[in-house]
Amino acid sequence: MYDFNHFAAAGLRRRLRRWAVLSTLALAAMVPSIGAGLPTQPVSQVPGYFRMQLGTFDVTALYDGHVGIDAALLGGAGRPTIDAALAAAFLARAAPVQTAVNAYLVRTGANLILVDTGTAKLFGDHLGYLLANLRAAGYAPEQVDTILLTHLHPDHAGGLLTATGNMAFPNAQVFVPKADADYWLSPKQAAAAPKDKQALFGMSRDAIAPYRAAGKLTVFAPGQVLREGVSAVRAPGHTPGHTAYLFSSDKQNLLVWGDIVHNAAVQFPHPQVAIEFDWDQPRAVATRRALLSQAASRAWWIAGAHVPFPGVGRIQAGKDGAYRWVPTEYGPVHEQP
């Protein structure tokens, strides 16, 4: 006699085995084999922008790129002191230090202000990404109505132009400190400069030329009102008219200070260290000491053109004239404490 229960159970087992095999095959078809289906290795970085709130102002740090700066250009302290500071930051003395080039966009409510413009491609392909990062941050170059230049070196003014030599910011009024304009835009000064420096004068003149021709260049003197919520802070030494800009909103302050520091690992703990790029090194050192002291005592936010991106943070005073950089923390956009 047939045992129907036995055959029913056997049939159920066969169906379960068949289902398991089919499921395995289907899953294998959906999931690529290891190695064969891995995505291509990404080689690009995330867009170079960072946002923070300063009172009612919106601040966006913009990354233009980086340049390698030889630590041998630093002086004013013994080589062992400089080398030790580099080593403490895991930087090799023998290799050029990767140095960021940053600019800062501030939306005040009344104006959209860009402090410095980056380099374009004047110094190579590692630079010139400001416009792309500006767009990635949600802005168009045509929306910028004010450009404040800390000084006229090409890594700050070169980005005024597109690759075709046109105005990159066609609706912006460009503000340049008078002492810098008098120096860098002067044919007489250019002719008197060493031959290896004369190209810098030409780059500065070229960057400014279309704005000057269009009536969009303002050369300002110390104390002149620029825009509501921002004031110019004289910071000479790196160049004759080097200027920082203090943005103030709801008792919050941000000092965009240009080239006060080129090497964060060395010049914060040792502010007496100058760099060969400084036009007047003793004056640059005195300016750095004064601004570091002021910023630390008043708890100002700082935005530095050559501090590791985003270059925003605060300064803490240490012992024997040393300072420590305290970078801002990545997080949601909100009013900073």
Score class of each variant (00 low, 15 high):
173 Q>Y: 06
164 T>Q: 13
178 K>G: 11
129 Y>K: 14
146 T>C: 08
175 F>I: 01
145 D>G: 11
168 A>C: 09
170 P>C: 09
128 G>P: 03
171 N>P: 10
166 N>I: 00
147 I>F: 11
145 D>H: 10
138 G>E: 02
163 A>E: 11
112 L>S: 06
149 L>V: 02
108 T>R: 07
180 D>G: 09
99 T>C: 01
168 A>P: 08
155 D>C: 04
162 T>A: 02
130 L>Y: 01
133 N>G: 06
174 V>T: 04
165 G>T: 02
124 G>E: 00
159 G>K: 00
120 A>K: 13
165 G>D: 07
123 F>H: 08
122 L>V: 12
106 V>D: 02
129 Y>F: 15
140 A>W: 09
110 A>F: 10
179 A>S: 11
139 Y>A: 09
148 L>Y: 10
96 P>V: 07
160 L>Q: 00
155 D>T: 13
170 P>N: 09
161 L>W: 08
104 Y>K: 12
166 N>T: 13
165 G>W: 06
100 A>F: 07
117 T>R: 00
145 D>E: 06
122 L>F: 11
144 V>T: 03
114 L>E: 06
129 Y>Q: 14
162 T>G: 00
112 L>Q: 05
169 F>Y: 15
143 Q>R: 14
150 T>M: 09
97 V>A: 02
172 A>H: 01
134 L>M: 01
110 A>M: 10
177 P>T: 05
118 G>A: 04
179 A>Y: 12
118 G>P: 02
102 N>Q: 09
113 I>M: 11
169 F>M: 03
99 T>E: 01
151 H>Q: 13
114 L>Q: 06
114 L>I: 01
132 A>F: 11
161 L>M: 10
102 N>W: 10
124 G>D: 00
118 G>W: 02
167 M>T: 12
131 L>F: 11
147 I>Y: 10
163 A>Y: 00
97 V>R: 02
152 L>P: 01
108 T>Q: 05
133 N>F: 04
98 Q>I: 12
162 T>Y: 05
125 D>M: 05
163 A>Q: 08
148 L>E: 08
139 Y>S: 08
103 A>V: 06
131 L>T: 15
148 L>N: 11
150 T>G: 15
146 T>H: 03
112 L>G: 03
95 A>H: 13
126 H>E: 15
167 M>K: 15
117 T>G: 00
128 G>H: 03
109 G>E: 13
140 A>T: 12
159 G>T: 02
100 A>S: 15
143 Q>I: 07
100 A>M: 07
96 P>H: 06
110 A>E: 14
135 R>Q: 14
173 Q>W: 08
118 G>Y: 01
159 G>E: 09
160 L>W: 01
119 T>H: 06
127 L>T: 14
116 D>S: 15
132 A>L: 12
113 I>F: 08
164 T>D: 14
113 I>Q: 04
103 A>N: 13
127 L>D: 07
171 N>H: 15
124 G>V: 01
107 R>D: 10
125 D>N: 09
153 H>L: 12
126 H>Q: 14
101 V>Y: 11
128 G>R: 03
101 V>T: 13
146 T>Y: 03
172 A>K: 07
127 L>I: 03
179 A>H: 11
101 V>H: 12
156 H>E: 14
177 P>W: 02
138 G>R: 05
118 G>V: 00
95 A>N: 14
155 D>A: 12
164 T>H: 05
